[in-house]
Amino acid sequence: MEPRSATLSLSEMPVLLRGEAAPIHRWIDQWSNSRALCLVLMTIIGTALFGAAVGSWRDALQAGYTALKFPLLILLTTLGTALLNGMLAPLLGLNIRFSQSLLAVLLSFTIFAMIVGSFSPLMFFLIWNTPPMQSAQTATAYRSVLLVQVAIIAFAGIAANVRLLQLLEHLSGKRSVAFKILFAWLAANLFLGSQLCWIMRPFIGSPGLPVQFLRPDAFRGNFYEAVFYSITTLLSQKN
């Protein structure tokens, strides 16, 4: 049986949210399967609740799909960049093991998930008050759901990264090193995360398109191509 200190129970989640450096440092130092599993479970629950709320405007089926895809997006991003993040940390001045860097990133994603999860009742309430798909104000409703979703995700992302920065500062003892590593990890996570978002779309579900788990062209093109194409189209229209 694992010692009590090696596990992370639900009652310890507030410690994570408060960013208490000493206990979190202990968790990072000692890898524990049960702790990692608990973090993964909390991440899945929080993001699935929020995903269900976001998708529920389009259709009940879309709510189910988004509840499945949102946790998948977060976990795949964490795993996809784990190796790179583990290598970047020592290169930028923080000599931590691979498991420690993975756990640090996972901790920040768990904070993110708990924040977005706590906003899911609010999101459900907003969707309940939003004109339904068939109404004349579909476009306005779609944009407002999108805006609120972006605002909540942005807030949760900022809060999670502030906590990650504090943890990195505690581990390295230097603010400049902590900033460098945070930016490097953020760049890697955003780069992969954006492409995974592109592949896994739709999350809310465009009103004019059918409800699907993945779009038929999910693996055709990439996020950055689409952004480039949008910018060039916009510029050519102006000319």
Partner: peptide
Amino acid sequence: LPSLYIFSCL
């Protein structure tokens, strides 16, 4: 309530 608790912890 859930968001108040999370904000309180944060």
